[in-house]
Design a protein around this nucleic acid. Structure first.
Lengths: 235, 235
DNA sequence: AAAATTAATTGTATAAAAAACACTTTATTT
DNA sequence: AAATAAAGTGTTTTTTATACAATTAATTTT
């Protein structure tokens, strides 16, 4: 047998939603399209699956090109398959979202792809069904981050509790009591206090913390509580 | 422009994981393959996406053929894309899982597709990467059912609390205290007590309950607690 | 008709977790 | 030395979860 007869063969795309955090707000990395259709418009970074690679490999390849980074947090989001989603021809796209430390992002690659970080509230209109992808990714991130420590992927190796709290407040667009927040995150046992302080944000300075990676992996699947009243915030 | 040049075109499959509950154990619906490759082996029900339908449409079409049912709970699970997952030719398969009331299943269609319900513990070896799909679906179901009322999709319109408890105990392979279970599920406010009793399971009989569908949809996304110590049970 | 049987139903006390709430400390700047 | 500004910390209250066993209802048996 040399293949399935009479079955449709369809171009398989991947789209990568790259999120970063600059200390104030959650951002998404977009590129200005240098080709038709929709040349000049802002778009997610994407590509097509080659015949001999998995979609995970394709996504990592595309992300490496765009960001210069390997081994980032990457999760399959959803496969989008509306027949007319791409005006050029029928394509099916599997969307992946990545969470990266924005500081590791290689600025020099910007120029190759005309890539730019956008705060989510100031994001331009995107092509095709990409707006829908972003909304779904945000839902997934809010849902998952309420229970699992994924937002640490957005921070550098060392971070302070106040920085972490600003991240959560930014993702959920809410204010959190700092006494309870501190208790919640420290009670997970995932954080290791460092001796040094970050003096950039205040006179007094805030102690750095690092993730205990053993515990991080061990407890990743557990139901942890990172935000108060999660049900009110995830929808 | 008439299409993307030089991009691979790949057969896009869908696989459907159909779960049911017979009052004792969780079951999965398999078919005996009537064609090559792997003819005669047990397999998930699947098919190929046509050029003008979405994968959701393809899944619903296949499920209608297999079960005779429309409008069942259906959720995209994951897209499987290892280049060599299908020995016939490169295919990418998006797996969906369905939860159905096993009593609505049309027995007469069995013969057309040689379909059969298997308790998960007695499931035969499956072809290709379908074993992996089943394991991932079970993980997803256990995860989601700990927080959201999806298991009600497996029950008929009227059911008793003891029946519901057996379902949860079966899905999580655990024993649950019936006093606390009853309190938990009733505290969601999703259940409406009926006047009639089910006399089939005991001398005394157990009151039927029905879902309040308004509240079901309204609270579906909320974090509810259906099982004790969920973290110990989902992995 | 009474007694036995069997599963359904229900309640309380205790423990743990979450939420509400404000003052003290530290280091720098004035 | 005083003022400033953010970091850090504790307690009380409320809510939720857990552990645990006796009673009730209907049928079956004697």
């Amino acid at each position: 047998m040399t293949g399935y007869n009479n079955e449709a063969r369809i171009v398989q795309a991947i789209d990568c939603l790259v999120f970063g955090f600059d200390g104030e707000t959650l951002k998404i990395l977009l590129i200005k399209r240098g080709f038709q259709p929709e040349k000049g418009k802002w778009s997610l970074m994407g590509g097509f699956a080659k015949m001999t690679e998995s979609l995970e490999q394709a996504s990592n390849r595309v992300l490496k090109q765009l960001t210069g980074l390997d081994g980032m947090y990457l999760e399959q989001l959803h496969t989008f398959s509306e027949p007319n989603r791409d005006p050029v021809e029928r394509t099916i796209s599997t969307a992946y979202f990545a969470l990266i430390d924005i500081n590791k992002y290689k600025q020099q690659l910007n120029d190759d792809y005309h890539a730019e970080w956008f705060p989510l509230k100031k994001m331009p209109k995107l092509i095709f069904d990409q707006q829908e992808m972003v909304e779904l990714a945000l839902k997934r991130i809010r849902y998952k981050a309420a229970l699992h420590p994924i937002l640490f992927e957005l921070l550098p190796g060392r971070f302070t509790i106040p920085q972490l709290q600003i991240l959560y407040e930014s993702v959920y667009n809410t204010k959190i009591d700092k006494r309870n927040f501190s208790k919640r995150v420290l009670s997970t046992g995932l954080l290791v206090k460092q001796e040094e302080k970050d003096k950039s944000g205040s006179k007094r300075g805030a102690f750095y913390y690092q993730l205990n990676m053993q515990k991080y992996y061990a407890k990743f699947q557990a139901f942890l509580n990172f935000i108060p009243n999660p049900t009110n915030l995830i929808s």
